[in-house]
Design a protein around this nucleic acid. Structure first.
Lengths: 241, 241
DNA sequence: CGGCGCGTTGACCAGTGTCAATACAGGTGG
DNA sequence: CCACCTGTATTGACACTGGTCAACGCGCCG
């Protein structure tokens, strides 16, 4: 499967794309780029003229605080636009960084603008794509605000499982998650030490395992229960029109 | 000032609207509605055919958890679209409720669709509007994940001050915030009791006061410092094109 | 005047954070 | 193939933020 097909897989869960639209999306890719782990891809406040589609690897959006801490506000996998919102915002309020070796497709804003001028339906689909990001943001807010550390981490493992599955990157209840416990801590607003404790606890339940950068779900129902996981964001259907 | 002008004030901070575009936005309003406090306006999972622009009062987006807790994921004031994202998502993954008596303008999705077919620039501006919501989501994620309760509450008071100011609803460092401490707790992921303790602490610093539903900022710099407030989301400029 | 929601207080407790030491695993040069 | 290095995972002792529970007060409204 080509990497861009992962984007199609994701979008077509919500709405049908015509041949023309698929072709248009393929055409807007100006070039591809690669980044090493921990490299910043987009820096806060720098005017952007391009957006980027992730083809492989994992990236995050993060903000740093004065006290040296950082909070990750989004994780992205292949098929995700990592900064489509820079098309309308022009400058981002956060950084985007590679968490693994990363390949991405670069899409000039001019090309996107052209799409908004001539392909209204595709425009709505792209808009929708940014709204799916926002739905996940909301899940994170709920998890950060009202879930226990254990439920939160479990929740993230559920979310990433479904997201990987949708784009064909999960098999047999397992998927790659090549992050460190410290990274996970920056996602969940915890410390690396506590993430470690939580993972031991989850492992002990037998519901899930996370070793050598790969997550294996042994008992999906149990994991979902621990996580108080709400898959609503996955089912947000777009009624084609 | 008409309520819809507050929307224009907000949008024109980022991009110029033409007369045509302003007129188009006024035209899409099908009718207005009012709600009593605590009434749900949009319910999770129910297919929507309209979006709503808040004309007066305060609304929130929230999710309830199995354990009876709730987390508010967004607050909205006059001039905000409370569910513009339902245009692309069709069903929401959360509820939207009135927190005060509320007036809103109802905008049929058909009319929005018409805009996307015929007015690409205005479409981009509406898209941008949903991206501003997302920028605030990110601030909340950072606050929830990495800020102390005190900083978080202070941060919210800063954010709401700027947002009210932008749409002409703040004066002399003060603005209305007719919520209960329990509401604030659901925003910040705290308990009502702790919000109370935090407010006492903030009051004691002399930086800010919140009584009878109105916030008064006595020392903006101090408040901003306590909050580790980052006004970046306000400055996200849209370079007109 | 009474009721009720909201704000306030105090005593106590649980969940996470902090700090610092130790174990391990994968990648490297010899 | 081995010894070493470095980043990451793991552990334990202890501190602290914020949660819990329960009572009480106050202001507004009917």
């Amino acid at each position: 499967m080509r990497s861009i097909d992962r984007l199609f897989l994701k979008l077509e869960r919500r709405d049908k794309l015509s041949e023309d639209e698929r072709a248009a999306l393929e055409r807007v890719v100006a070039r591809t780029e690669t980044y090493r782990p921990d490299k910043d891809i987009v820096v806060e406040g720098v005017p952007q003229t391009e957006s980027r589609l992730l083809l492989s690897g994992i990236t995050c959006r993060y903000k740093g605080l004065s006290n040296g801490k950082r909070q990750i506000t989004a994780l992205h996998i292949a098929g995700d636009f990592i900064d489509l919102h820079s098309f309308t915002l022009k400058k981002l309020d956060h950084n985007v960084a590679a968490m693994t070796p990363v390949t991405l497709a670069v899409v000039p804003h001019d090309a996107l603008r052209e799409i908004t001028e001539t392909m209204p339906h595709l425009t709505r689909v792209l808009w929708l794509n940014t709204m799916l990001d926002a739905a996940i943001h909301r899940e994170w807010v709920v998890a950060l605000g009202r879930k226990s550390a254990t439920a939160h981490v479990a929740n993230l493992l559920c979310e990433m499982y479904l997201r990987n599955q949708i784009v064909g990157l999960a098999s047999e209840g397992s998927y790659d998650l090549p992050l460190t416990q410290g990274d996970m801590a920056d996602v969940c607003g915890l410390t690396d030490v506590h993430v470690n404790r939580v993972m031991q606890e989850l492992r002990a339940t037998g519901a899930v395992e996370w070793k050598s950068g790969r997550v294996t779900v042994h008992d999906w129902d149990a994991l979902q229960r621990i996580a108080e996981f709400d898959p609503a964001f996955v089912h947000l259907e777009h009624l084609p029109r």
